[in-house]
Design a protein around this nucleic acid. Structure first.
Lengths: 250, 250
DNA sequence: CCAAAAGTGTTGAACTTACACCCATGA
DNA sequence: TCATGGGTGTAAGTTCAACACTTTTGG
């Protein structure tokens, strides 16, 4: 840890102690989609090599979900992000050595239970914000990730697994794709999330069966080949299938 | 609130403050199965009408999962319970008026973020324990529940929904049924969880296809009709399907 | 016209659903 | 023996994976 971060921590510690709930934090795994790649928004603390998930603390009079939204808005500039709380992490040793050189009464050095959210957000609507603690805030490819600090690798992997599981019964795409998109683009999003190739014909049929897509009278011109049809999500049907699920067995 | 509970709270407050993490609690939705009914273990605080979920706090040097296990063991006498952390609850107003007559610095009156677990446990292995705070600890039918305190109704419903969702890709039964059981018994467990009737033949085939059952050379004698075959779970296959899931779409 | 990608059709296997049928048992 | 519940069979419809075929586009 370098001196800048150390001084920032010492300076902010009493303020945090006053404003925030102790022992509890929020971490966000922010997914985006760009250039056929699934991305995740990571930050780098000043003077540390390892990267971490954007996170923060909960104000003493603030709802948990509100806190997650606020933290993400501060970090991305985007409002009303799709957020899904998926698990809390509370091993005693999870923060390990990051603050080992700091005084024991430093706010940030205490033990935290972290409530983790994953977020789906349009890559183009995000302006990564570098805050007081951090030296960088960048999108990273999920298949080419840097070293993580603390247990953030575990949290990230848990988020990706949860997202993949959610694909089984929730629609995904409204928050990750632009307004208009083609079937092949949607398919590549699914392939990026699942990290495996899907059969084109079967994917088309399944998506159509879900009934959440409106085919537009336009095609995506400009490619070197046949112009694919453009689609939009049917907002109502999408919302309905988000709430009621796409395929239950029982 | 009656005087007994009030005095207990005042007495325990400083001890809690010393031993536990502040602002964070654990609540458990404990499911059991008895007499073809899905049950949930509830407690009643001394002098209150409404019922609540068994819960507790996290020791300052205790892992989150350990805490949940400890809390349940204290309450049920059972060890190594199947626990599934499914969500955390953190609305600012969630504890509402329960402690409104108590001093503001009472440990129990502070605002909590509660990490909720659901537990599946053999009804016969539980001995409900009434602790210092509570007047009662009893199994209740999930289709005939009393009034809940705080947001525990929400937490309970969320747990049941999660359990139903988990039925889609996890086996259930090892923790809720006795060692040996019949197909109709297993089916009635599923029906109790889902609160809907299932087709017998199709249920049989699905369970067999999962490959987690061993058919025994015994039948359940004593009923008024044809003696049904007895089954056991194949522990290895069960564990494997718990980890890898039973049916993924993609 | 050609290559390549988009869109659609086909086919057999697997699974679901909804029944029907037979079997075993105690009353 | 008979009512009842347990176990299995079957036929129609649906979904699936895999693959082939047709269409559309820019070069």
């Amino acid at each position: 840890m370098n001196k800048t971060l150390y001084n920032t921590l010492i300076e902010l510690s009493p303020i945090c102690k006053k404003d925030y709930l102790s022992s509890i934090s929020v971490d966000c795994v922010v997914f985006g989609f760009y250039n056929d790649k699934l991305k995740v928004l990571l930050i780098q603390l000043d003077g540390l090599d390892a990267w971490g998930l954007p996170g923060g603390y909960i104000l003493k009079e603030e709802d948990l979900n509100k806190a997650a939204n606020r933290i993400l808005e501060e970090r991305t500039g985007a409002k009303d992000i799709f957020l899904n709380q998926f698990k809390s992490f509370g091993k005693t040793n999870r923060s390990e050595n990051v603050f080992k050189d700091c005084p024991d009464d430093l706010w940030h050095k205490q033990r935290y239970i972290s409530v983790a959210f994953y977020a789906l957000i349009d890559y183009h609507k995000v302006t990564p914000v570098v805050d007081k603690y951090s030296a960088a805030c960048e999108w990273k490819d999920v298949d080419n990730l840097p070293d993580f600090m603390m247990d953030h690798q575990t949290i990230f992997e848990s988020a990706l697994l949860q997202l993949r599981k959610d694909l089984n019964y929730k629609p995904v795409g409204l928050n990750l794709l632009p307004e208009k998109f083609t079937m092949p683009e949607l398919q590549r999003l699914y392939e990026a999330i699942l990290n495996k190739e899907l059969n084109r014909g079967n994917f088309y049929r399944r998506m159509k069966r879900y009934g959440i897509l409106n085919k537009l009278d336009e095609t995506r011109k400009g490619g070197a080949h046949k112009a694919p049809d453009l689609y939009q999500f049917d907002k109502e049907a999408y919302k309905c299938s988000l709430e009621n699920g796409l395929s239950e067995i029982w």
